[in-house]
Nucleic acid binder design. Structure first.
Length: 426
RNA sequence: GGAGAGGUGGCAGAGCGGUUGAAUGCACCGGUCUUGAAAACCGGCAGGGGUUAACGCCCCUCCAGGGUUCGAAUCCCUGCCUCUCCGCCA
């Protein structure tokens, strides 16, 4: 959520920033609501004050043994008047809240303007796309030949956009997740967490998936508003909801390996082949919460942590800064890591690293106590995939394929694979 | 699934429906004392919001949401959560 004070004090600035996202801020609607809110709030609080004062004097009079009847008559109509005012205030405040909840974060000044991914800015490349002495196959062809990927079985068991993995391929998938976790906990200083895969709506409001993106989520058939997590960002960041951290607890760094569930409504026809876009996929997620002045440095740092995974695996990739039109709802700045996929002959997103500044923290009241002021201050949250495990498997298969259809196991994974050097058809 | 107990400030723990946002202790911060530290003593110490140039003033919050009342932490209803015992279970 944006700072309501900023919106009140400098609405033009907010409007200009949101315009970069192609969004027109309805200033008039906001100002009308805001005017009514102020009016009603002042009035309500005056009435509450009056009620409190009168009630106290009644208490005092009663204790003194005086006749309270005239006092009671005096306040007789107050209750109703107050109730009306409170009711009206509540309505306006809810409208205002909804208005605020639907506004995305302001793009950072370093973010390039643009409409869609075509306008993303490439920052750097690492590694060289491999040269094959043969026509490289995509992971679907490779996986089916190996007996390691079975899309048909998955479709029978559930439906489209699911995968069954078998044998060494399934193990490779597990090895990747293990490797990533070990790297981030062992070398990058993150604390491992195991979290619920089902979250309530408050958590989803906190990170910004709700209220706007309900159609991307799987909601449970429950009377309670429970959802499958679309990313571990939701449970991990919500560890901080309604918390005030002490300065020693910073920087807060956690990592978790979880499945992610996405409905992919509106993605009909996109990436229908293979396991690029699935309803269920595994991801290792990095989350940090830091003091405000550090968050942009930390974004660079966290992006580096995700890049390290690709480098250690030996997978060529590039880094792009998302343009204003491609930027997610809650983020002020995002780097995407795109890995080279020989089967597609192009770079595809494998990680997304974002700084949310205080946007999520304000929604979930995630704070730390600044010893200089003694006051709680909003944290800044940063997160990123480190990495999407399914897509990493795809990248390993396609980049390390050999002429006979076998897959070379990257050095760093061999310890997790019982020393296996290559995956051959079973 | 059955039976019971309970949810108050960072923690522990009081709180006849009235001047209690909340006693007391611990923790924490500042000060006095001390060569220094400890002890002792003095003082401070919840969060959110409104209003103000500022000092300040005001409102809301004792799990959450409703209700009763002039007035609710205290009474009533619903939900959530925690604990204990029995049953079942990975």
């Amino acid at each position: 959520m944006l700072d309501p004070k900023l919106l009140r004090s400098d609405p033009e600035k907010v409007a200009t920033a949101l315009a970069r996202r192609g969004l027109e801020l309805d200033l008039e609607a906001f100002e009308t609501l805001e005017r009514r809110r102020k009016e009603l709030q002042v009035k309500t609080q005056e009435l509450q004050n009056l009620r409190n004062t009168k009630s106290k004097s009644i208490g005092r009079a009663k204790a003194a043994g005086e006749d309270i009847q005239p006092l009671l008559e005096e306040v007789a109509s107050l209750g109703d008047e107050l109730k009306v005012a409170e009711e009206a205030l509540k309505v306006v405040q809810e409208e205002l809240r909804q208005f605020m909840l639907h506004l995305p974060n302001l793009p950072h000044e370093s973010v390039p303007d643009g409409r869609d991914e075509e306008d993303n800015r490439e920052e750097r490349r690492w590694g060289e796309p491999p040269e094959f002495g043969f026509e490289p196959r995509d992971h679907v062809a490779l996986g089916e030949a190996l007996g390691g990927l079975d899309f048909e079985a998955a479709a029978r068991i559930t439906g489209s956009r699911f995968t069954v993995m078998h044998g060494a391929t399934a193990r490779l998938h597990r090895a990747l997740a293990q490797f990533m976790l070990d790297l981030h906990t062992g070398e990058h200083g993150y604390r491992e967490a195991y979290v619920p895969y089902i979250v309530n709506d408050d958590s989803l409001y906190g990170t910004g998936q709700l209220p706007k993106f309900a159609e991307d989520l799987f909601r449970l058939e429950e009377e309670r508003p429970w959802y499958l997590i679309p990313t571990a960002e939701v449970p991990l960041t919500n560890l901080l909801r309604d918390q005030i951290l002490s300065p020693e607890a910073l920087p807060f760094k956690v990592v978790a390996h979880t499945p992610c569930f996405r409905s992919e409504a509106g993605a009909y026809g996109k990436d229908t082949r293979g396991m690029i876009r699935q309803h269920q996929f595994d991801k290792v997620e990095l989350v940090q919460a830091v003091r405000a002045e550090e968050s942009f440095d930390v974004l660079e740092q966290l992006t580096g942590h995700a890049e390290t995974v690709l480098q250690k695996l030996g997978l060529p990739y590039r880094v792009v800064t998302l343009c204003t039109g491609d930027l997610g709802f809650s983020a002020t700045k995002t780097y995407d890591l795109e890995v080279w996929l020989p089967g597609q002959g192009r770079y595809r997103e494998i990680s997304s690293c974002s700084n949310f500044v205080d946007f999520q923290a304000r929604r979930m009241q995630a704070r730390w106590r600044n010893p200089d002021t003694g006051k709680p201050e909003l944290l800044h949250t940063i997160n990123g995939s480190g990495l999407a495990v399914g897509r990493t498997l795809v990248a390993v298969m396609e980049n390390f394929q050999q002429a006979d259809g076998s897959i070379r196991v990257p050095e760093v994974l061999r310890g997790y694979m019982g020393g296996l050097e290559a995956i051959a058809p079973e």
